[in-house]
């Protein structure tokens, strides 16, 4: 083999600051300056290579040389910080020595920190500094992106919350209720639908003004939330109409008790300026138990029908939907018009 060139030891140090030279017995006879920073000369020089390093056998067949010279090598220090290194070995011309050139590979970020390395510790041709630059720049950008993500996510949640909320009462709106009903029906969760319509609310509005009406509505919202559980849904679906979806509750007696409690609470007068506002409520109830095929529209319609039955009975009471109940269309118009 033609000998291309011979190098001074100092030239080797500059070109390959992480090299090792091993003799035929595997004893380390020379160490590059950067490698020296990792363990100190005395910990390596004169020691057997295999006492200092663990060499990983990555599918290499056994070689004639002490260190295989045909494949990428992966090694770690036997003691202390393991610092994975990668490298390549080659026999040296006119001797039985082997030259081993190493680099940090992916451990470069940790190694620079662990051993306090500087730009001067890397060969001018080594891409390590570019790599460190890239990792830092990427981490900075990633951090910014992460913060932006968190802000956007927060804004998204707030916007969705707003789109599903009735601003006056803080209750859910019809859109939210349609969404939740759809979900529960698709998931096959049993529930009860309670349609609540306020009685005498129009009188409050007409005599005491809208400000009083708003106070009453806010109080109604409080009553409904207080009288239901966290898993139930309370929505304001019209000016003075509310719907309560009782999660996994279909027992008629229990539901009737809830409805009566709600009506009783609604009837407690609400102070407004120097006077009080008095209202009540009529309730219509239906549950998923009453249907083979569950359809949100149909349930709403039937809860409505039961509600009109309550209005018809003189208000301030609750009714379960029963098949054959007269619907709104069956009721006489003057009554329907005056029902509020």
């Amino acid at each position: 083999m033609a000998l291309v060139t011979q190098l001074e030891a100092s030239a080797l140090d500059r070109l390959m600051p992480m090299h090792l030279i091993l003799d035929a017995q595997g004893i380390i006879t020379k160490i590059g300056p950067t490698l020296c920073k990792l363990r100190g000369e005395s910990a390596m020089l004169g020691h057997n290579f295999f006492d200092v390093f663990d060499l990983r056998d990555d599918g290499r067949k056994s070689a004639n040389t002490i260190i295989p010279d045909d494949k990428k090598l992966y090694m770690t220090f036997k003691s202390g910080v393991s610092t994975p290194l990668k490298g390549i070995a080659t026999p040296m011309a006119n001797s039985t020595d082997m030259l081993l050139n190493l680099s940090f590979g992916i451990s470069v970020v940790d190694a620079v920190h662990d051993y306090r390395l500087t730009a001067g510790d890397f060969a001018a041709t080594d891409l390590a500094i570019e790599m460190l630059y890239l990792v830092e720049a990427k981490s900075a950008v990633l951090e910014e992106t992460k913060q932006l993500n968190t802000r956007l996510q927060g804004a998204k949640v707030a916007a969705e919350e707003q789109a599903y909320t009735d601003t006056l009462t803080g209750l859910k709106n019809r859109r939210a209720m349609d969404h939740v009903l759809g979900r529960m029906i698709r998931a096959g969760v049993p529930f009860a639908l309670m349609h609540i319509d306020l009685d005498y609310f129009k009188d409050v509005n007409d005599t005491l003004g809208h400000a009083a009406g708003d106070v009453v509505l806010q109080n109604v919202a409080k009553v409904l939330v207080d009288e239901t559980r966290a898993e139930d849904l309370v929505a304001r679906v019209g000016g003075d109409e509310f719907i309560v979806v009782m999660h996994k509750m279909t027992d008629a007696d229990q539901l009737m008790k809830v409805a009566e409690r709600i009506i009783a609470q609604l009837e407690i007068p609400v102070p407004f300026n120097d006077t009080v506002c008095r209202i009540s409520g009529s309730v219509g109830i239906t549950t998923t138990e009453q249907y083979d095929q569950i359809d949100a529209e149909q349930m709403m319609h039937n809860a409505d029908t039961a509600l009109y039955a309550s209005k018809h009975q003189g208000r301030a009471c609750a009714n379960f939907y029963v098949a054959g109940m007269p619907t709104l269309a069956d009721q006489d118009l003057p009554n329907a018009a005056a029902r509020r």
Binding site: D58, G59, K72, I106, V109
Partner: peptide, 16 residues
């Protein structure tokens, strides 16, 4: 084969 052994490093690479 080289790919298989690169799996040893994949954790470090993706951490970068």
């Amino acid at each position: 084969t080289e790919f298989m052994f690169s799996l040893n490093e994949i954790e470090g690479r993706s951490r970068l």
